[in-house]
Write a protein that binds this DNA or RNA. Structure first.
Length: 228
DNA sequence: ACTTGATCATAC
DNA sequence: GTATGATCAAGT
């Protein structure tokens, strides 16, 4: 008994109901519902889990530079967590335009659009993929303060890119948003303007949310009160 | 332990 | 190559 691919949810409520339906279930349970085989691990297929959840919740399949649910303005992110809902990894946001960028302001950046509203779907466990369990979803939107911090980080990083200062721009820049390599290998290249305004090849990079930041979000939503 | 830098699969 | 989905693995 396998179900067909769900259509896109019509509103927030329908999306949330679908998320609740898979919460508490294992990866193999969700996959079997749609007749999808579960790979033994994610090593050779790192995006598989994210794609399974997209499928189950009715996100569009195509790879496009817009949120997973364009009509709702919601981006979907799975996040691997331990039993205390602490993330094991940072969260990829989007690629960073290094070509001098037409998107020169935070307001019109892909980054802001992706982070406007995010449905975080925790996946609990680090054992065999099939046995990991989907957690309760968190529909998050940045607070006033968080938006300010995201914008400040984005602007600092973008300023350096525009100045052609990629050498001094590593993953240490940014309090909650950071820039890291994003390609198949370190030999992958894209074009950028260096400090002398010359076109040079460099590694493609992407924006990521630091682990400590997403940890804070999940802790506030799901965490138990701390003694300290 | 944690972060930074490197890597894997796939669609177009 | 550029974008999507991310995790792996070396470095500190």
């Amino acid at each position: 008994m396998t179900e067909p691919r769900p259509r896109p949810p019509v509103d927030d409520a329908e999306l949330l109901v679908r998320a609740q339906r898979i919460a508490g279930r294992s990866v193999v349970q969700v996959a079997e519902r749609f007749g999808l085989p579960v790979p033994p691990n994610l090593r050779a297929n790192k995006g598989w889990l994210g794609q399974l959840v997209e499928y189950a919740l009715g996100a569009s399949a195509a790879s496009r530079a817009e949120p997973d649910f364009p009509h709702l303005g919601i981006e979907l992110k799975t996040v691997p967590v331990d039993s205390m809902a602490r993330p094991r990894e940072s969260t990829y946001v989007c690629v960073a335009p290094l070509d001098g960028g037409l998107a020169s302001t935070w307001e019109e950046s892909w980054c802001r659009r992706k982070l406007d509203r995010v449905l975080f779907l925790p996946v609990v466990g680090d054992g065999p993929l099939a046995t990991r369990v989907l957690g309760a979803a968190l529909l998050w939107a940045p607070s006033e303060e968080e938006r300010g911090r995201l914008q400040a980080d984005w602007e600092e990083i973008t300023e350096r890119v525009v100045r052609g200062d990629l050498e001094g721009l590593d993953a240490r820049v940014g309090e909650i948003l950071q820039l890291r390599p994003k390609g198949a290998t370190a030999r992958d290249t894209t074009w950028t303007l260096d400090a002398d305004a010359q076109w040079v090849q460099t590694m493609p990079r992407g924006f990521y949310l630091r682990r400590a930041f997403t940890a804070g979000l999940l802790q506030r939503a799901f965490g138990v009160a701390s003694m300290s």
